[in-house]
Simulated assay, not measured.
Amino acid sequence: MKVRSCYFFAAMLGLLVSCKVNPFTGKKVLNFYPNSQVFPMAFAEYDEFLGQNNVLKDNAEAKMITKVGQRISSAAERWLNANGYPGYLKDYQWEYNLVKDATVNAWCMPGGKIVFYTGILPICDGETGVAVVMGHEVAHALADHGAQRMSAGTLQQIGAVAGNIAIQDPQSRNMFNQAYGIGSSVGVMLPFSRSHETEADRIGLQIMAIAGYNPDEAAALWRRMKEKAGGQAPAEFLSTHPSNDTRIQNLTAWAPQAKEEAKKFGVTSFQ
C-alpha cells in the first residue's frame, strides 16, 4: 500500500464518521466520540487537576472569573435556543476556576470545565479582557473541539498502523514512518488545531458581544499578548495557534459582525 493510499483510507473513514454539525457554522465536523463518553473523562481529569493546584476561590479576581463565565455561557445558551438548538447544553456542567500560576494561559475541557491562570490576568487588563478569553474558551467547549482532536488523533493512528501493516520492507517502513509523522503533523494536525483556534476566536467574539462585552477589546488584548511575547513565537505553520498578527487582523474584521449579531438580542451598548 502506498503512502497516498493510507492517507486516502484515513480521509474516507473521516468522511464516514463526520456526522455532527457545528451549530455556529452549520458545517459537519469530524467527531465520533459522544458526549456521554468524553464528558465524564474530562470532568474527572478536571477535578484531579484542581486537587493538585492552588485554586483561588474567595478573592475578587476569582469571583470575576465566575461572573464573566456565567454571563458568557448564558449568552451562548440564548443564541443556541434562538437558533433552533434547545437542549444543546443539557450535558454541560459549566465551571470556572482561577488557579494561582504565572503561566499566561487559560483552557477549557469538554463539557465546560474552564481554568484561568493568574498569569493571564495582567494581559486581560480587566473584566472585558477576561470576557475575550472566556468567550474563546467557552467556544471550544460549544464546538466540541476536544472530541474533534481525539477523533483526528485516532485517524492519525489508524493511518500509521495501516502503513506499517501494508509496508513489508523495513527500510521502506522506516521512511514511511518518518514521512507520515512529519506530514500528518505539519500538513494535517497543526492546521486542524489552528482552524479550531480561529473558529473559537470567531464564536467567542460573537457570544461575548451578546453577553454585553465590547468585541473591539479582543484585538486590543492580542496586541498586548504580542507585546508580551516580544516577537518570540514559532512560524505559524509550525504552531498549534494562528500568529498574533493573524488573530489581530481577524478579530478586528469580525468585531462589527459580532455587534450586529448582538443587536438581534437587544444588545446595543457594550462594557
Rank of each mutant, 00 (worst) to 15 (best):
Q70K: 15
N59D: 15
D144M: 13
Y117V: 01
R149G: 01
G119C: 09
P86S: 10
D101W: 02
D47S: 14
E77K: 15
P110C: 06
G69P: 03
F43K: 14
E61K: 12
E61N: 12
D91M: 07
E48F: 09
G112K: 11
D125W: 04
M150S: 09
A60T: 14
V99H: 05
I120H: 07
W94Y: 14
F116N: 01
W107V: 02
S151K: 09
A76D: 06
N53S: 12
C108S: 13
W79N: 03
L56H: 03
V115N: 09
E127M: 06
V133D: 03
F116A: 04
G135P: 02
N97T: 11
Q70T: 14
P86W: 05
N59T: 12
K63L: 10
L89G: 02
V104H: 08
L121I: 15
A76W: 06
E127A: 07
V130A: 10
A106P: 02
V99A: 01
Q52Y: 04
A44Y: 11
Y46P: 02
D47L: 13
T66G: 00
I65S: 00
N53L: 01
Y88V: 11
N59E: 11
W94D: 03
E48S: 15
K57G: 00
Y96L: 02
P86N: 10
D91R: 09
G146K: 07
W107Q: 00
G51H: 09
G111C: 02
L121G: 05
K63W: 00
Q148Y: 07
T154I: 14
V130P: 00
Y88G: 09
Y117I: 01
A143N: 12
N83I: 11
E45Q: 15
N105P: 09
S151D: 05
T154K: 03
Y117N: 12
Y85T: 13
G129C: 03
K113D: 01
Q70V: 14
Q70M: 12
M64E: 09
P86K: 13
E48G: 12
K113A: 11
I114K: 08
D125A: 14
Y96S: 03
A82T: 13
V99W: 04
V130Y: 00
Y85H: 15
A152I: 08
T118S: 15
D101S: 15
D58K: 10
F116M: 05
K67C: 00
P110K: 11
D125M: 01
G69V: 07
